[in-house]
């Protein structure tokens, strides 16, 4: 089922209340043609389950990996993804856009 960003925030709350570890990723800036608008969310739990989207599939894998660290140490992180740049990030945006994603723990 498709999920709206509001469903995702409700789900994030429900997951946390159910005792799961939860991180929330949010698109905070975009440049050029970015697949998802500013404010889009992805919620991730401690087992790597996720709901929502910050890029339409291009960088979710990396965001989920980083979210595990955020859940681990509780410190928020700012991630930046651009056109496929092998030295900096494994993931890239084939559309040529750039996005910044903020990842925080729900505590």
């Amino acid at each position: 089922m498709l999920s709206s960003d509001s469903d995702i925030l409700n789900e994030a709350e429900a997951w946390k209340r159910a005792g799961r570890e939860v991180a929330l990723a949010t698109v905070v800036e975009t440049w050029g043609s970015a697949p998802r608008p500013v404010g889009s969310h992805l919620v991730i739990d401690g087992d790597g389950n996720f709901l929502g989207s910050v890029s339409g599939g291009c960088v979710e894998g990396d965001v989920i990996t980083e979210a595990m660290d955020v859940i681990g140490d509780g410190k928020p992180r700012m991630l930046e993804f651009g056109v496929a740049d092998e030295t900096a990030w494994r993931a890239g945006l084939s559309c040529g856009g750039r996005i910044k994603v903020y990842v925080e723990k729900v505590a």
Binding site: S6, L9, E13, E104, V106, A107
Partner: peptide
């Protein structure tokens, strides 16, 4: 983000 804050945000939307 605190759970209480997330909860308040969801309540405003509802």
């Amino acid at each position: 983000m605190d759970l209480s804050l997330l909860s308040a945000l969801n309540a405003e939307r509802a």
